[in-house]
Design a protein around this nucleic acid. Structure first.
Lengths: 350, 350
DNA sequence: TTTAGCACTCGAGGGAAAGGAGTGCTAAAG
DNA sequence: CTTTAGCACTCCTTTCCCTCGAGTGCTAAA
């Protein structure tokens, strides 16, 4: 059977109406929405075809039709009018982005919050999670006899520091030598090697040098681990309850658990794809089989990539969400691009 | 009317049974639970008294009784057997606390997670939020011509650092002088003054010095702000759904919103109180009127105090939660006291 | 191919009735 | 004065049945 233009139009009407009203759409409504050029009986014939072709579903024999995941997919791919964000929306998004910049992670978490409030669904944000982070450089700063500050800069230009207490006194004069040692032997290598290298060097050092060295390495390891792990931030979870399909506790529960306790299982985006829409059963995760996810990526500096996603019912307003999310992601890319702070961009040196 | 020993015993039985079964308790059950020494009719007389006195409630005339908030309060204050955590529970808690320590905030967030999993209710953790944090010390480390690392140590011994990019080249040799300037004029004073002092000093400095100075101050301001703000971490939100009283979406919704989007409104603990139990209407927050909260505090080092709380139905298992939470809080105090990291750890040297 | 007409289906909503847990009261017993 | 057995009563819950109406599918005519 062929998918005629009229069938497509009907599918579009059904989908948009269902997105709006959350109840099955009947032939009479469709006939009217299409301008009354055909009768409801004709529509009914078409509807029967669309069900047979798998684009629509019928909750029960005497109900109207709702889109199947396949129907949504067609809608998203072909039928949906790619919305542009309005000037007002753009203005809102931009003003939300003006906030002051802090640590990378908290910026990313905030981005998630903004998205959630912009689209009115729960949202999540994922930090990059680079593969093999190494330390580019160490600095040790004296504090007092029993403590010093370790500063670690990674090759993805994050800088972390911590106050470390020692058991034996460390002379301030020894610190540069120690830092030198660290910078010579412990840069550019990965965590496992850090440990083994430390062991190899141990015999040559006295306890008063080995201890602070070991503490610094331990700290560096934690920094690297933390930098390699991707963190997920979620917000707006309670928006879920505003959706009629999640009045049913069992469904809401699954999603809530995912959004609060199993964040790491939220879908990520294929490389090189700016945006992706995952409809119902297209999701791998069981808890998302009755939901849809829209994910977009943005660039952080030149070589990092952030991810931001929205979770909603299959009936979610794809056109609006997709438009706002992609605009938001693009804005973030721009902001990170032309902006100061976190990752230094290699730009024009005079 | 007098609250006889038998009335108290009945109240205890009712409360504990209701905590367990989540349904009104009838006279027959109580008679049996009390060893059959009295008949259900006697119990019924007592129950009528207890209702009149306000310790019990009757959902409707022909139902059993449930404790009123006043009843819970009496139970918590007098009747409840202060449970001790079992050796096994203690072992579990201790092993959970063995995890490696990282940044203070993430340790605190993790503590929340552990508590939630220990008590099977949602939990939250609040960071201290000291009042007037100042910078104790600045360090500036050269990176390249266009960037340097600012390290800021606050008077509560947190150390934060960030890579800062400059617009004009900064010579590595200038940094110690700059740091000196910072340490002379910008330590021990509060944020507002930082800005004004910077302005006051501005005329004496060339742009190539003023810029990095201003950037460092800006960073320091952010660090202080962040350190003064108290952060709230929540976990285990979805545990709420396991409770029959929150099957009703409208109630669950209020709590969920509180636990996800309005965390800052979660109750805190009065100073000098190690633990507090807030039952139903004793809570200020509207969303908590049908819920109870158990909050405990622990010490972080010598002069900071962390907060950790559990949210559950009024029917929550106070004895168990209180026991585990207070044990956990005490363990945290010990850990922070004698321990590693933040205050770093003294361990055996090879 | 489209349309009007019509019987049919099925869920939602609203009592009515049955079932049952638990009460309150009374009157007798301790 | 307290306790207890007995019993009528209350009221929630569950179940069943009925009605109502939206919407369908099919047929036959345009």
């Amino acid at each position: 059977m062929e998918l005629t233009a009229r069938k497509k139009e009907i599918l579009k009407v059904v989908t948009e109406r269902y997105i709006d009203a959350a109840e099955p759409v009947g032939s009479k409504y469709i006939a009217q929405a299409m301008g009354g050029s055909v009768s409801s009986a004709t529509i009914r014939n078409e509807l029967a075809d669309l069900v047979e072709m798998g684009y629509l579903e019928q909750p029960h024999t005497s109900a109207g039709r709702i889109p199947s995941p396949k129907g949504y997919r067609l809608y998203v791919n072909e039928l949906m009018e790619r919305r542009q964000v309005s000037d007002q929306e753009a203005a809102e998004i931009n003003s939300a982005l003006q906030g002051k910049m802090q640590e990378l992670d908290s910026v990313i978490a905030q981005a998630g919050q903004m998205v959630s409030s912009i689209v009115n669904y729960p949202a999540y944000a994922v930090t990059a999670g680079k593969n093999s982070v190494t330390v580019r450089r160490y600095d040790l700063l004296p504090v007092d006899a029993m403590s010093f500050i370790a500063v670690v800069m990674t090759d993805d230009s994050r800088v972390k520091s911590q106050l470390l207490r020692t058991e034996l006194p460390v002379e301030a004069e020894q610190l540069p030598a120690l830092a030198n040692l660290l910078n010579t032997h412990f840069t550019g290598i990965h965590t496992e090697e850090l440990g083994s290298k430390l062991m190899a060097l141990a015999p040559q050092l006295g306890a008063e040098l080995f201890m602070p060295l070991s503490q610094t390495i331990e700290f560096a390891t934690a920094v690297i681990d933390n930098s390699e792990r991707s963190h997920v931030f979620t917000t707006g979870q309670s928006q879920i309850f505003r959706q009629p399909e999640f009045q049913d506790l069992t469904k809401a529960d699954g999603l809530m658990s995912l959004l609060t306790d199993q964040k790491s299982q939220l879908p990520v985006l294929d490389a090189n794809t700016p945006m992706q829409i995952l409809i119902g059963p297209e999701n791998v995760n069981e808890a998302l089989k009755d939901a849809s996810v829209v994910v977009a990526s943005y660039d952080i500096g030149d070589n990092m990539r952030g991810l931001i996603g929205v979770v909603g019912p299959t009936r979610m307003d794809y056109a609006t969400v997709a438009a706002r999310l992609s605009y938001f992601a693009e804005s973030l890319t721009k902001m990170f691009g032309k902006n100061n702070q976190l990752p230094p961009k290699e730009d024009d040196i005079p």
